[in-house]
């Protein structure tokens, strides 16, 4: 457990660093959000309003140290300032509204991609030298294809030409959001194409990654011995080979889980999906620093949490990490 405590300490330190950088970077840049807003209104703003906006955005002439403490205090209350794009909505509200869509879509799709891709990788390594090796060039091709290209192809074929699936939004305009079966069906229906995009575009990595490690593992003495023991192929394949081959792949899975929150920006844009990725794009277009800052903070924290989960998974899956070091 000392291992986990050490890791936890490391992540807390990293989180603090991320938060502090998030505070520093915008303040090192010229201009402030109010100037942007004023510029957008072509200067027709009276000074009192500017002053009010400055207060709303939390811009003050206090010492940097004071500002930093205020920033930390606000963060503790989940206050990330106000968005410019959606003024006067709070950034935290914007994120809270879009995060579930991204986590639901990208998270589930990533999970599916990981499960299928890893299993395929295991089976393809096990059956190496057979016709299944013919899948490899296809996987390498998919590995090289960018997300948005897959998305565009799917939209063109299944959305525009065949009209099987909707090509934008997260649910139909004709349904009321709520805990109804109709709403759930609409959400699933709308999520199908973007989810397939993410699964298709990311699965090749999983297949190739798992297959490569697995082929190496199959050469290990303990796999040969498991075979010599007369165990069933299924047990040799999963309990001996795959069980060990999965360990190096946990990190890459954790990283991809971390980036789930960042959303597959391009996928979300192609499908006009109301997730974090779309919000980030809007933020960039409108020079909405508070929103970008908030989103980046959430992404960095998500990556940290995902890495911590990976460490936990290691402890569960690999007894060697449980060894206490003096």
């Amino acid at each position: 457990m000392r291992f986990l405590a050490r890791r936890l300490g490391f992540y807390l330190l990293t989180a603090w660093a991320a938060i502090t950088l998030n505070f520093l970077i915008p303040r090192l840049m010229p201009g402030d959000p109010v100037e942007l807003l004023v510029a957008r209104m072509k200067g027709n703003v009276d000074p009192a309003a500017i002053d009010a906006m400055r207060r709303a955005f939390g811009i003050s002439d206090a010492s940097p140290w004071r500002q930093y403490l205020d920033y930390l205090g606000n963060l503790a209350h989940g206050e990330l300032g106000r968005s410019i794009t959606f003024f006067p909505t709070e950034v935290s509200t914007v994120i809270a509204d879009s995060l579930p869509w991204t986590v639901g879509l990208v998270g589930v799709a990533t999970l599916i991609s990981y499960l299928i891709g890893t299993s395929l990788g295991v089976i393809m390594a096990w059956k190496r030298g057979t016709w299944l090796d013919g899948v490899l060039p296809a996987a390498t091709f998919m590995h090289a294809v960018p997300y948005f290209w897959v998305a565009l192809a799917l939209v063109f074929v299944f959305g525009v030409t065949l009209r099987w699936f909707p090509v934008s939004r997260a649910y139909g305009l004709d349904v009321m959001p709520g805990l109804t079966g109709e709403f759930a069906r609409s959400v699933l229906y709308h999520a199908t194409l973007p989810a397939i995009t993410i699964v298709l575009a990311s699965m090749a990595d999983r297949i190739l990654g798992m297959r490569n490690v697995m082929v190496t593992t199959l050469g290990e003495d303990y796999v040969v011995m498991a075979e010599a023991k007369g165990l069933t192929s299924r047990r040799v394949m999963w309990a001996y080979a795959a069980r060990n081959a999965i360990l190096p792949n946990i990190t890459s899975f954790a990283l991809s889980l971390g980036f789930v929150v960042g959303g597959s920006v391009l996928t979300e844009i192609v499908f006009s999906y109301p997730g974090i990725g779309s919000m980030l794009l809007k933020g960039v277009e409108n020079e909405d620093f508070p929103l970008m800052q908030g989103i980046f903070l959430v992404i960095s924290l998500a990556v940290l949490v995902a890495n911590f989960l990976a460490d936990l998974a290691y402890v569960v899956l690999d007894p060697r990490t449980r060894q206490e070091t003096e």
Partner: peptide
């Protein structure tokens, strides 16, 4: 599979590598 281990068993060179590290 039945012949293996019931009739003929193998001890490998390095037990370091012939035992599954996660079991």
């Amino acid at each position: 599979r039945a012949f293996r281990w019931k009739e003929l068993a193998v001890v490998f060179q390095s037990a370091m590598n012939s035992l599954n590290p996660v079991i």
